[in-house]
Amino acid sequence: MSLIIDHIDKSFDAVQALSRIDFEVQDGELFGLIGPDGAGKSTLFRIMASLLVPDAGRCIMHGYDVVDDYREVRKIIGYMPGRFSLYMDLSVEENLAFYARVFGTSVEENYDLISDVYEQIAPFKRRLAGKLSGGMKQKLALSCALIHRPRVLILDEPTTGVDAVSRREFWDMLKKIQGQGITIVVSTPYMDEAEMCDRVALIQKGRVLEISDPSIPRDGDDTQLFSLRSNRGVYAYLERVRSMEGCKHAWLFGDQLHVTPKSKDNAEKMKSVMDSWDDPSLQWKPILPSIEDRFMGLMEQESEEHSTNGERI
């Protein structure tokens, strides 16, 4: 087992940042932590990186406790904080050389591990890190986190604010690194990146909502999910669908609406009402929920459970 998170609690003053976080990551797994800003992802990652002490619970990294054996932990992890944390006034190669020396190794020694990543930024190796574009900064930070051949790579929101192309490239690189036998724990606010992970934990307001394998389609839920498309654009239909009697939730979802009926019977009734809307391009069909649908469903569930006090985001 690479990583054991065992019932971790952490609060800052009155704010409960993490409550009862509990999961395990296998050797060589690519594990994703998915949730919005403020969900507690960074706090959890800092605990894993031995930078914060949990109020309760344990975090074990390859057999080492991140609190008691922090020195050992720091030798075997590669950590990339959420904020770009390299020296802006040093060049690309100087940054890399510095981190190599900090970990008592050299760039040459582990070059094969980072070559895939580093070759993409090597043409700019004399440029100051502060002058790199967002995507290149991420690649440099990843190279620096990898240079000592860590056993576990901890990446806190490496793709936030990065464009779709760079994000795709970044995930491709992570897959290759995983192929070298390195365990990777990564967080992201982008739900569509879940499919790149072996398993994901959905996290919201300091709590894990669910841990799942994104490659296994989920169905058999009590309610089903439907998509609605139209050549006329779906936004015009949003309020109409929501106001229908059998509708539980309806949300924009790219060029579709994703609609959760209250029950299967309601789905049929809704379909028949829509037929009367006189839009031949209207397509209504059952679909399998994506991670984002799951996340939204779980959020709705949570807020319904907490709706007694009337506060909802």
Binding site: S50, F84, C144
Partner: peptide, 13 residues
């Protein structure tokens, strides 16, 4: 301030 201390701390230094 620049967050680089976070990386230094997470290293074996």
């Amino acid at each position: 301030e620049f967050g680089t201390m976070e990386l230094l701390l997470a290293s074996p230094l």
